[in-house]
Simulated assay, not measured.
Amino acid sequence: MKKLIKEFYEKESQIVEKLEKIEKKSQDKQGNFYSLYLEMYSTLKEEGYEIIGSGYSRTVFAKNEDDYVIKLASNQDGIIANKGEVNLSTSEDTSNNISVILPDLYSYSKKGNWLICEKVNTIENVSLEDLKKVFPTFYYFASTKMIGNKIIQKDIEISEFKEFISNVFFDALRRPVLDVKRFLMILKRKSYEDHDIVNIYKNFPLKDIKRFVEATTYDFTADLHLGNLGIKKDLNLSPESFVILDYDTGVTRGIKKVRHRYDVENSPNAKIIKEPPAKEKKFPLDRVPDFDAILAAESVYRKLLEYAIQS
Rank of each mutant, 00 (worst) to 15 (best):
T144R: 13
N167R: 14
F61C: 08
D208V: 06
D248A: 15
T94L: 01
E240M: 07
Y247W: 12
D223N: 09
N203Q: 14
I101H: 06
D28R: 12
V264E: 15
K271W: 08
I255Y: 07
F242T: 00
S35W: 04
Y41Q: 13
I15C: 03
F164K: 08
V69G: 01
S89F: 06
E85V: 01
E92Y: 10
P205D: 03
G53L: 01
L105G: 03
E124I: 11
S74T: 11
Y68G: 02
A215Y: 00
P277Q: 00
R259C: 05
N97C: 02
K21E: 15
R211W: 01
I116K: 03
K181H: 09
V258R: 09
I51N: 11
N82W: 07
F161M: 12
Y247F: 15
I101E: 05
F242W: 00
E265T: 15
S109L: 02
P176V: 08
I200V: 12
E12R: 03
E118L: 05
K154C: 11
Q14H: 10
E160W: 00
S74E: 10
K45V: 13
K154A: 05
Y218P: 02
S89I: 00
L224V: 15
L226V: 06
L88Y: 10
K271A: 03
I231H: 02
Q310G: 01
R182V: 08
L131F: 09
Y262Q: 10
K282D: 15
E85I: 04
K11F: 04
G55K: 00
A296P: 00
R211I: 09
I197W: 03
S13D: 11
A73Q: 01
V86M: 02
L88V: 06
S159I: 15
K202V: 11
F291H: 14
G250Y: 13
E12V: 04
C117G: 00
V60H: 07
Y49E: 07
N203W: 00
D171F: 14
G31K: 07
L229K: 08
I52K: 08
V300R: 08
S127H: 01
A278V: 15
R58D: 06
K303N: 06
A278Y: 15
I231W: 07
E193H: 04
M40Y: 09
D248M: 14
V243D: 08
E240C: 01
P277V: 04
K83H: 06
D104S: 13
S166G: 04
D67I: 10
L295H: 04
E65T: 04
S127M: 05
T144Q: 12
L173E: 13
G250D: 14
S241T: 07
K111F: 06
S166Y: 11
L305A: 09
F283S: 04
Y140C: 12
K188L: 07
A296M: 08
E10S: 11
F170Y: 14
N75Y: 00
R261K: 14
I70D: 01
L115M: 09
G31I: 00
V177D: 13
I255H: 02
L131P: 06
H260M: 11
S99E: 13
A308V: 10
R261Q: 14
N199Q: 10
E298N: 10
R253W: 03
S13N: 07
Y41H: 15
S74H: 04
